[in-house]
């Protein structure tokens, strides 16, 4: 059969299409682990630096509130200043009791952040341990953890916390964190269990088993490091949501007692003078929202950086 036009045997010039050795390792690129890879993608995003700097500042304020204001949040209150507007040395004005709003916002940081941090730590610890044991060992252990988790999951966190807080005497940041984590752990446990389950069924775990690596060592060295990424993301985001939860409980009057300074309490007390003096509400609320926002943004960035699908596209 004669060749039709444009279909003759064509061979490209060799200079134009040089043939490379088969499958040779490209040594020009620097070696990088998945975590180094994630770090690399994170540090290129301005959002990462914004949220990190915010979190750093919040941490400093929570640890050393005295560095940021010389005014005492409760000793310098003078009724003469009640609902007063901003003035020199008191940029946010005064509360109804004549306390400095700026000082109260600064000193309220610690309680709110403590609850968020503690609850996140507890929930992550419980979720990771229970989730990985359930997912990895399966069987009756999995059945028990999953069913108990289902039961706790059926009680929405704040509803459960309302019940517990309304029967518990005098709350502290620690007890509020405990109560919140009692109802919030199943979420992380479920995510961890799913991730562990898929890691356990992966070929590298089978390979390690066949190589003679012990079961527990595989869990510690292979399964957990490969399952932890989604938990880190959720934990970062939930730090923010726990702070909101604490403020909601305080707003309802069953969170931290009014003697403990927290954003939730200040917002709750601002209700009464809201129409005449909105700044009493706005400043602590803004501080709270900025904190939550910082952790939300960090969570988003971590998700993008740790997501294998997103990584494959890079």
């Amino acid at each position: 059969m004669p060749n039709k036009s444009g279909q003759a045997h064509f061979v490209a010039e060799l200079e134009d299409t040089p043939v490379a050795p088969i499958d040779r390792l490209d040594e020009s690129q620097k070696a990088r682990s998945t975590w180094a890879d994630a770090w690399d993608s994170m540090r290129r995003r301005p959002m990462f630096w914004i949220s990190s700097v915010l979190i750093l500042i919040i941490a400093l304020v929570a640890l050393f509130p005295g560095l940021f204001t010389s005014v005492s949040p409760n000793l310098d209150c003078q009724l003469a200043n009640s609902n007063g507007g901003p003035e020199a040395g008191h940029p946010f004005g005064f509360t109804r009791q004549g306390c400095d709003v700026y000082a109260r916002t600064i000193f309220g940081t610690r309680a709110s952040v403590t609850v968020g941090l503690l609850a996140t730590g507890l929930v992550t610890l419980m979720g990771v341990i229970l989730g990985s044991l359930a997912g990895y060992y399966g069987g009756w252990l999995d059945a028990i953890v999953s069913r108990v988790g289902d039961i706790f999951f059926a009680i929405p966190t704040i509803l459960g916390a309302i019940v517990l807080m309304s029967v518990l005497p005098a709350a502290t940041p620690t007890s509020v964190a405990f109560v919140l984590s009692i109802f919030a752990w199943p979420q992380i446990a479920r995510i961890m269990r799913g991730a562990v389950l898929s890691a356990t069924n992966s070929d590298y775990v089978m390979a390690s088993t066949a190589l003679g690596v012990s079961k527990f060592r595989i869990l510690l060295r292979h399964v957990i490091p490969n399952s932890i990424a989604p938990v880190i993301v959720i934990a970062t985001v939930s730090l923010g949501t726990f702070i909101v939860a604490e403020s909601t409980l305080s707003f309802l009057g069953i969170g931290l007692p009014t003697s403990v300074m927290s954003w939730g309490n200040d917002i709750s007390q601002a209700q009464t003078s809201l129409v005449t003096n909105p700044q009493v509400l706005l400043y602590p609320a803004a501080a709270l929202s900025i904190t939550v926002l910082a952790f939300l943004m960090l969570g988003d960035i971590l998700r993008d950086a740790l997501d294998p699908k997103a990584r494959a596209l890079r």
Partner: peptide, 26 residues
């Protein structure tokens, strides 16, 4: 063993050196 999926049978978080040394260590 050597398994099918070269993308799945190596732990993505283990460097090549650690991967090869793992059976020796175990």
């Amino acid at each position: 063993p050597v398994f099918q999926d070269p993308y799945g049978s190596l732990d993505p978080q283990y460097s090549v050196g650690n991967t090869i040394a793992e059976p020796l260590l175990a």
